[in-house]
Design a protein around this nucleic acid. Structure first.
Lengths: 255, 255
DNA sequence: TAGGAGAACTTGTACAAACAAGCGAGCCCA
DNA sequence: TGGGCTCGCTTGTTTGTACAAGTTCTCCTA
């Protein structure tokens, strides 16, 4: 059973994406939409809030809402799962575990993952046959067993963990910056040492706030970009100051 | 006059940031908060929605809400304005226009900015005295005059434009990836050619959806990172496929 | 003691009503 | 003609109510 406001949101979104409401044009008023759908104004507002969060429409008190764009931001699942994202974009994709070992948690890991033992996995992901992403992931102890059981060429870790132990990655925190490729990065991604990589560091938790993993993912430059649409009043992306230093050598599996 | 739900949100945020509600702990129920603040449940829900959008709390139907983190995502203004962001972080900052000229719009610019003539500005931004950001911005014709009147060392373009013509940057679309520094990048940022830069391409519009500018901003690696907090159901960040090609030399707003 | 039924609690959805606040267009007057 | 003002429209805020749906804990029973 889909909620009513979601169906209204879907319908409005379709109308925008199909061009019935061109970019820059005014949306029907809340009252009009409410009458058309036979719903209360509050429900319509909820529907419109969904579209606003997707960056499709903007609003200003007193004035009609306007259509801002036609490219829709996707769900968290696609941000988190490389496989789901690749599939949604119609790309061939694959993955391969390069190295995997258990070790004691160190540095900020005990605090972040809440376990003294962790499982460290180095994985290469490919898009259209080419290696584009190097994942250095550290799993909390309580999922380590399930991760170890996965095949080395598992295509979607997220889905596999959901199937095996019902694990859902619910919340994530991401830090995005650029770093030069280290020796290992260069070798595995097939680029020159020092060439630019897009790095995404993330920590993921379950619905209950239980930490699952932290990861250092490095994308080959040009293969992937992150996109965000936002508006005054609500957006989750922020800059964070770095310290102008970065060491290329502080990796996990660096020999 | 601040809205009631905003005051409740502020109070709750303070409690979370101050540690009264530790990370992972449960928030009081909506009914409890409503009674404590003498407000209706709907108002409390609105307040909590603000915190959820900031990534501070998560929720699941039937279960108490939990605190997800203590680092608050900031407002759009801080994402958009380098000056406002730097100030909020207590950094010394500056800016200097390197070059500026009017020219005919080309490529995707006429469509994106809605004008045939544009103003192109090359600006270097500094943090704590060091150059960290190179902005290549193209302004639509209708703001070009106001931009030209700004002093070359204007510290905050966003604020200056607001003061002079009441312009508010309301909506933005951002594309984030990594690129190697070109010759000009390297010279102006004081890094080696080919070293990694974090690139943010953005297009900004007013409340009315009127395009203001598109920009290609390049951050020195290590100086700045982008951070995002998200959850299942709502997040604005997406990956976008690149084409695996990139040339270091093809600057200035290529597609 | 283990497991299941169920009650109590909590969040999600929906409706209705009212007032506040801001915008825009049209009107009137100088 | 130009400027200011008013009025209607539209979105923003708030309250109250009701029920649906999911979670969690307790207690009872096999």
């Amino acid at each position: 059973m889909v909620a009513r406001y979601e169906r209204i949101a879907d319908e409005l979104r379709d109308e925008i994406l199909s061009g019935a409401h061109p970019v820059g044009s005014q949306l029907p008023s809340e009252a009009e939409l409410a009458e058309r759908h036979g719903a209360a104004r509050g429900t319509v507002r909820q529907a419109i809030a969904v579209l606003a969060a997707e960056g499709l429409v903007g609003s200003r008190q007193g004035a009609r809402r306007i259509v801002l764009g036609r490219t829709r931001s996707q769900s968290f699942a696609e941000l988190h799962s490389f496989a789901q994202w690749a599939r949604a974009n119609g790309c061939r994709y694959g993955g391969q575990v390069i190295a995997q070992r258990r070790r004691a948690a160190r540095g900020p890991e005990p605090a972040r993952l809440g376990s003294a033992q962790v499982l460290e996995v180095l994985r290469v992901r490919t898009l259209e046959g080419e290696p584009v992403l190097l994942e250095r992931t550290v799993y909390a102890e309580w999922v380590a067993g399930a991760v170890e059981k996965l095949p080395a060429d598992c295509e979607s870790v997220t889905e596999a963990l959901y199937e095996s132990i019902g694990l859902v990655f619910a919340y994530g925190e991401h830090l995005i910056d650029a770093v030069p490729a280290g020796a290992q990065d260069a070798r595995l991604l097939g680029v020159r040492r020092g060439s630019p990589l897009l790095r995404q560091r993330r920590t993921t938790t379950t619905h209950e706030g239980r930490p699952v993993e932290t990861s250092d993912d490095r994308y080959r430059a040009g293969s992937v970009a992150f996109s965000i649409r936002n508006s005054i009043g609500a957006n989750p992306l922020v800059r964070q100051a770095g310290d102008l230093r970065f060491g290329a050598g502080e990796h996990m599996f660096e020999s």
